[in-house]
Design a protein around this nucleic acid. Structure first.
Lengths: 220, 220
DNA sequence: GCTTGTGAAGTAATTCACAGCC
DNA sequence: GGCTGTGAATTACTTCACAAGC
C-alpha cells in the first residue's frame, strides 16, 4: 500500500485506537479484530483496517490484531513510545490547569516547565502536582536545551500569541499546541495543533440550534 | 442551493469567519470579499463562498459581503445571537480554569453555575471572576430551570463521565461540551462536542515525528 | 470457520470556471 | 473593472467486496 499521503482524520483515529487498545490490555484481552475495535469506537471495520494499513501490516488474518503488539506499533507511529518533555507558556488559568491535568502524563507527555513574562507571576510556584516554578520567557531557550523540552503548550492571550510563538520557535521548541484563537504564522511544515474552545462551543450551539429548528412544534 | 446536508467542516469554518469579521468590524471595515476573508484564514475564495452559500445568499455581487450584516447572519446560524447560559460540571483544575476563561464570555457564553459532588468542593466559592459557589449535582436540575442554563461543560474524570452526562441530560441540559476522553452514549441527535486534549497532543507528536522522519540526515 | 489487506466503487468535500450582476 | 453563487470537475475520503491466509 502506498503511504504517500495519509489523511489527517486517519491519524486522529489512531489516537482513539491506541486508547481503546490500552483499555483492552488492562482487561487482559490478547487480540482484537477490526470489527470489535471499530464497534466500540463507532467506526466500520473497513475504516479501522484501512487506517492501520496506511502505516503497515500489523494484523494477522483469521486472528485479528495482537493488542500488545499493536499498541507498541501505534505508539511508535505517533511518537509517544518515549516520554516527551513539554512546557506551558502562559501561566494563566488555563495554563496552570493544564499543568495539573493528569491526562497528559498518562499519555507520555511530561510538563517540566512553565513560562510567563508577567512580573507578578515569575518566581511563583505552581504547586498543583510537582511544584514547578514559573520562569520568565528569557529563561526558555536555556531550559529547553537543558531539559530536552520538545513541545510547547501556548496559553497566552491572543494579542501576544504570535509574538510568543515566534520566541518559542527561536528557543528551539519542536511543536506548538496552540490555545490562542489565532492562526499562527510559522515556518512551512512546522508542527502546530490548534485547540479552539470558543469554536467548539459554537459548534455545539449550532447543533443545538439545528435540533431546535428540526422540531416543528415550539420550544419544550 | 440545496441545504439538505451541510458538512461539519463548513460549520466549523463559520466560527472562524465570524471571528475574523468581528475583527474587521473593529477596524471599521465595511465590506469584505470572499477572497480577502479567505486570505487571512488561509482558505480559497471558493471555499468561503460555498460555505456561506450553504446557509443563504448573503453577498452582493461586485461588492462582497457587508461585514456588519454578515456578522448578524452568521450569529443567527450559529445560535450565538443571544447570550447562552452555561454550567461547568466537575470543579477540578480544568473546570475551574474554564470558569475563569474570558474567551467564552466574549463569544456569548456565560457560565453561571458549577457543580461537583466531591464533599470537599461543594460550598466552596470559585472566586476567579464572578464568585460562583460550587453546588452538588443534586441541585443541577433546579438550577438549570431557574437560570435557563442550556449548555453544560463536562470536566469530570473519565470514569464518571458517562454517568454524569446521563444526569445532565436528565436535568434538562440542551448540549454537552465533553472534555472526558470517552465516547458519550446519548440519545440520537443529542448535541455533544468532544474536546480531546490528549488526542490533540498526540496529533502534534505525530506531526513532529513525521517532520523528523522527513529529513534524511540525522537528528539535529 | 474467521480475519486481514487492498483494489474498485461509491460518497463527500473542495476547487474550478463562468454566467449574471454591480 | 469587480464580485457572488453555483453547476461541473476534481480531489479526498470511506465503504464494499473479495482474494489470500490462519
Amino acid at each position: 500500500m502506498k503511504r504517500d499521503h495519509i489523511p489527517a482524520s486517519a491519524v486522529r483515529r489512531l489516537s482513539l485506537y491506541l486508547r481503546q487498545l490500552e483499555s483492552f490490555l488492562r482487561e487482559d484481552r490478547r487480540t482484537v479484530s477490526s470489527k470489535a475495535l471499530g464497534e466500540v469506537l463507532h467506526l466500520t471495520d473497513a475504516q479501522v483496517r484501512k487506517d492501520l494499513a496506511y502505516f503497515g501490516q500489523f494484523g494477522h488474518p483469521g486472528v485479528g490484531y495482537r493488542v500488545d503488539e499493536l499498541i507498541v506499533r501505534v505508539r511508535q507511529i505517533l511518537g509517544t513510545d518515549k516520554i516527551c518533555n513539554a512546557c506551558v507558556v502562559g501561566a494563566g488559568h488555563l495554563g496552570t490547569a493544564l499543568l495539573a491535568y493528569k491526562g497528559f502524563a498518562k499519555r507520555g507527555f511530561q510538563i517540566v516547565a512553565v513560562f510567563d513574562n508577567s512580573p507578578s507571576k515569575v518566581g511563583r510556584e505552581v504547586s498543583e502536582l510537582g511544584s514547578v516554578r514559573i520562569e520568565p520567557l528569557s529563561a526558555m531557550k536555556e531550559r529547553i536545551r537543558q531539559d530536552s523540552i520538545r513541545l510547547g503548550i501556548l496559553t497566552v492571550p491572543e494579542e501576544s500569541a504570535q509574538e510568543v510563538a515566534g520566541q518559542m520557535i527561536k528557543a528551539g521548541i519542536g511543536g506548538i499546541l496552540n490555545f490562542a484563537p489565532v492562526w499562527l504564522s510559522v515556518p512551512a511544515g512546522y508542527p502546530v495543533m490548534n485547540v479552539d474552545l470558543s469554536t467548539d462551543l459554537e459548534q455545539l450551539s449550532y447543533q443545538m440550534t439545528e435540533m431546535g429548528r428540526g422540531r416543528s412544534d415550539g420550544e419544550q
